[in-house]
Computed example of a mutant assay.
Amino acid sequence: MPNTATPPAETFVELTTTTPLLDYETPAIQSLIRDRGWRGLSQFDQIGALHDYVRNEIRFGYNLADTTKASQVLSDGYGQCNTKSVLMMALLRALGLPCKMHGFTITKSLQRGVVPELAYPITPQNIVHSWVEVWFDNRWVKLEGFILDDGVLSALQKQFPDRNSLCAFGAGTDTLQQPEVNWTGADTYIQQTGINQDFGLFDTPDQFFAKHPQELTGLRGFMFRNLLRHWMNTRVRRIRNGHSYSLPKGALGNG
Rank of each mutant, 00 (worst) to 15 (best):
T105S: 10
I106C: 11
L110T: 06
L110E: 02
R112F: 08
R112A: 14
G113Y: 09
P116F: 04
P116R: 08
P116Y: 03
P116C: 06
A119R: 00
A119M: 11
Y120W: 13
T123Q: 09
Q125E: 14
Q125R: 13
N126M: 04
N126E: 13
N126C: 00
V128R: 14
V128G: 09
V128I: 14
H129F: 05
H129R: 07
S130H: 03
W131G: 07
V132E: 01
V132C: 11
V132A: 14
V132I: 13
V132H: 04
E133P: 00
V134H: 00
V134M: 05
V134P: 03
W135K: 03
F136H: 12
D137W: 01
D137N: 12
N138M: 01
R139L: 02
L143Q: 04
G145N: 05
G145R: 04
F146G: 01
L148I: 02
D149R: 07
D150M: 07
G151E: 13
G151A: 15
G151Q: 15
G151Y: 10
G151R: 15
V152P: 00
V152G: 01
L153K: 08
L153P: 00
S154M: 06
L156I: 11
L156S: 06
Q157K: 15
Q157A: 12
P161K: 14
P161Y: 15
D162L: 13
R163P: 03
R163A: 06
N164G: 05
L166C: 09
F169D: 01
G170L: 08
G170C: 08
A171N: 07
A171K: 10
D174V: 08
P179N: 13
P179K: 12
P179H: 12
P179S: 15
P179G: 13
E180M: 12
V181I: 15
V181G: 06
N182K: 15
W183V: 14
T184H: 08
T184M: 03
G185P: 03
D187Q: 08
Q191R: 12
Q191N: 07
Q192I: 05
G194F: 01
N196S: 11
F199T: 02
D206E: 13
Q207V: 04
Q207M: 12
H212W: 03
P213R: 03
P213V: 02
Q214E: 11
E215C: 02
L216Y: 03
L216W: 03
G218A: 09
G218E: 07
G221L: 10
F222N: 04
F222L: 12
F222S: 06
M223E: 00
M223R: 04
M223Y: 09
F224Y: 15
R225L: 09
R225S: 11
R225D: 02
R225V: 12
R225K: 15
N226P: 02
N226D: 02
L227S: 09
L228H: 05
R229V: 10
R229A: 08
M232L: 07
N233R: 11
R235N: 07
R235D: 05
V236T: 10
R237A: 15
R238L: 13
R240L: 13
R240T: 11
R240G: 12
G242C: 10
S246F: 04
L247V: 07
L247K: 05
L247I: 09
K249H: 11
K249M: 09
G250I: 03
G250H: 09
A251H: 07
